[in-house]
């Protein structure tokens, strides 16, 4: 989704302002000339300059007929929008369901659902999800001892 440079610039300006505002309550540290607020403030000025330059450039582009937003082609294809949202949903699912459910079911569901949504044959999607999940769990969870969440596995041991 491409936005006019002026909009990007505006976002940077807002970000810079928020960052600078957040540094206001930082305490002074006696005996030190500069505190933890120095770098963030320098960066907010720098980001603001980039933002201003982009607004100027975007404004000029507007004059030459550049729209505020360029509507990307995929926005008109529902299945593509769904796929995009599913990837985001998959990460959210892992964040919220990973601990209570455990790695095994969550990984299986994510790989299987995404693979089917991407147009893979359901049979192969399920096979891939099963094999990949078990392989990752065995290699990282058991051999390399990454503390992957166990979740409902605890109920069975």
């Amino acid at each position: 989704m491409r936005a006019n440079d002026a909009i990007c610039g505006l976002v940077l300006l807002v970000l810079a302002a928020v960052m600078a505002a957040l540094t206001i309550p930082f305490p002074e540290f006696p005996g030190q000339n500069y505190g933890p607020d120095l770098l963030p403030r320098i960066l907010s000025v720098a980001l603001a300059i980039c933002g201003a330059l982009l607004i100027k450039r975007g404004w000029q582009a507007r004059g030459q007929g550049d729209p505020w937003f360029t509507r990307p082609a995929w926005l008109g294809v529902p299945i593509k929008v769904m796929r995009l949202l599913l990837v985001i949903a998959a990460l959210l699912f892992y964040i919220f369901a990973g601990d209570p459910l455990g790695f095994l079911p969550v990984s299986f569901i994510i790989i299987a659902v995404l693979a089917i949504a991407f147009g893979g044959r359901p049979f192969w999607a399920l096979v891939a999800a099963l094999v990949a999940t078990l392989a990752i769990n065995y290699f990282f969870g058991s051999i390399m001892r990454v503390p992957l969440p166990r979740g409902i596995l605890d109920l069975f041991v």
Binding site: D99, P100, G151, I152, D154, L155
Partner: peptide, 15 residues
């Protein structure tokens, strides 16, 4: 997380 683990823990104990 605490809530979830506590819930799972309780479930485990119950089971």
């Amino acid at each position: 997380r605490t809530f979830m683990t506590a819930a799972t823990g309780a479930a485990a104990t119950a089971t």
